[in-house]
């Protein structure tokens, strides 16, 4: 069975390599950011915060840890997952990649929550948290777009 584009209905649209590289690069930026935050947490060192002034306040607040584990470590693992997922898809073109994409919403929701805590509770903004929130939002948008594009091609279009 083929659709109007001549593609097999069961075959998903392959994200272009450019999209995949962009996806992986954003995940890598998020990973670098979170890894640095995790490292400063365990090293007990000061953050270089630039224009923003609330880094220390945010990263030393009670909200920066869950069960004694820094949230930045969870972030590092989250971005590591997406880097590996992008490489995995590049390598195997496996459909499993598309099944994982909906999980990008978890990072997006977590980022929204953490930005809310910074703005409404801590009254301080951390530069690194903003970078992470931007990365996870972009990952969510690209994941959503890749999944949406796949769906539109795998569903037969009505004949005009």
């Amino acid at each position: 069975m083929t659709n109007s584009n001549g593609l097999s209905a069961s075959e998903p649209q392959k994200p272009s390599n450019r999209t995949l590289i962009l996806f992986g690069a954003i995940a890598f930026i998020g990973f670098l950011d979170s890894a640095y935050l995790t490292a400063t947490h365990y090293a007990g060192s000061a953050l270089s915060c630039g224009f923003f002034t609330g880094c220390e306040q945010v990263t030393s607040s009670a909200y920066s840890e869950v069960f004694g584990i820094p949230i930045a470590l969870f972030g590092s693992l989250y971005y590591l997952f997406w880097i590996c997922a992008a490489i995995f898809y590049y390598d195997t073109r496996s459909h499993l990649f598309f099944r994982a994409l909906p999980f990008a919403i978890l990072g997006f929701i977590a980022s929204l929550g953490l930005m809310g805590i910074q703005i409404f509770i801590l009254d301080a903004i951390c530069l690194y948290c903003v970078i992470s929130a931007t990365s996870s939002t972009l990952i969510f948008i690209i994941a959503y777009a890749m999944r949406g594009a796949r769906r539109s091609l795998t569903q037969p279009r009505p004949a005009l």
């Binding site: 890894a35 640095y36 400063t40 000061a46 953050l47």
Partner: peptide
Amino acid sequence: ALWGGTILILVVAVGGAIWIANRDGGGDV
């Protein structure tokens, strides 16, 4: 090469993050 390169880049990234964190005043100021 693909997976080896990825792992190498990630190890360098983590090493770099740890190095920068310690350079920026590790321990008590």
